Amino acid sequence: MTTEEEAREFIAAVKKEHYKANHNVSAFAIGDKQEIQRSSDDGEPSGTAGIPMLEILKKRELTDVVAVVTRYFGGIKLGAGGLIRAYAGACNHAIDAAELVRIVEQTQLDLTMAYPLFDNVSRFIATSGLVISDSVFTSEVQMTVFVDTDQVSQLMQDLTEQFSGKLTMALRDKKLVEVDI
């Protein structure tokens, strides 16, 4: 979710799916620095459900995320402390079970080289923690790697120094990718 509207649509979809539930408590944090934060107790006593969930999202520094905890009343009154623990705990458990990712902008870097350099450049790329996404072998070798945009300049400098300027480098398109946390 990257907008408040998307977050609200998601919450509405969960409420529609669980329309017989007593409560669909929600919280969301949107923006790189959690600029948009909202929560709803959805009928639970004020401050006992949505705010504890929002605090979990903030504490775990999650962004562009929506959490909805659905509760069907089972005949046991939890009290304020019990509600806070239940909703915050459910939110925490869901986050622990989720596969969290970080969104990173990467730039395509095309490297062109003579055949004798291929193995050494491949090793250098691998030891830099990068993956070769494509290699084309014609009269020369063209290799494509995707690099975090904020690291492109340093990598290009390192490649130039390591291989004495014998590589041709070209920057191409940028893309957003998910990187496991």
Rank of each mutant, 00 (worst) to 15 (best):
T2W: 11
S40V: 02
G31V: 02
K16P: 04
E35F: 06
D180L: 07
T127V: 13
D148P: 15
A114F: 08
M156Y: 04
I76T: 14
V68N: 11
A49Q: 03
A126Y: 05
V121H: 10
I103M: 06
S133L: 07
V104W: 01
T149M: 02
V14C: 06
Y19N: 13
N120D: 15
I36H: 12
F118Q: 14
S133D: 15
H18P: 01
D173P: 00
Q142E: 14
L100H: 03
F124K: 07
I11W: 13
V104K: 05
I103Q: 14
H18G: 00
F146K: 12
L111G: 04
V177S: 14
R85Y: 09
E6V: 00
V141K: 08
F137M: 08
G43D: 00
Q34L: 02
E105S: 06
Y72G: 04
A97D: 04
L130R: 02
E35N: 04
T107L: 03
R172W: 10
F146S: 07
T112F: 01
D110F: 05
L155M: 08
T112M: 04
T138W: 00
N92P: 01
M53L: 03
S46N: 05
C91P: 02
G47Y: 09
S164M: 15
Y19V: 07
E4D: 12
E17G: 04
E140F: 09
E161S: 14
Q142N: 10
A29C: 10
V136P: 02
A13V: 05
Q108Y: 02
S135D: 06
E5H: 06
N24E: 01
T138F: 05
S46H: 11
T3A: 05
I11A: 09
T160Y: 06
Y72M: 00
G31N: 02
Q151R: 05
P45L: 00
V104T: 05
Q162K: 11
D148E: 13
K77W: 08
T144S: 14
A7T: 01
L117D: 10
Q151A: 14
K77R: 14
V147M: 03
E5S: 06
I84F: 15
A114V: 05
E6D: 14
F146V: 00
I11T: 12
Y19I: 06
Q157G: 07
I103D: 10
S153T: 09
V179F: 07
V145P: 01
M169P: 02
E55T: 13
S164F: 13
D150T: 04
V25Y: 05
L78I: 07
L155R: 04
E178A: 11
G82H: 15
I132L: 06
S153L: 07
V147W: 05
G82W: 13
E61A: 14
D173V: 03
F163W: 04
R8I: 10
F124G: 00
V69S: 10
G43R: 00
K166C: 08
G82T: 12
S164R: 12
Y19Q: 11
R71K: 05
I36L: 12
E61V: 09
R60C: 06
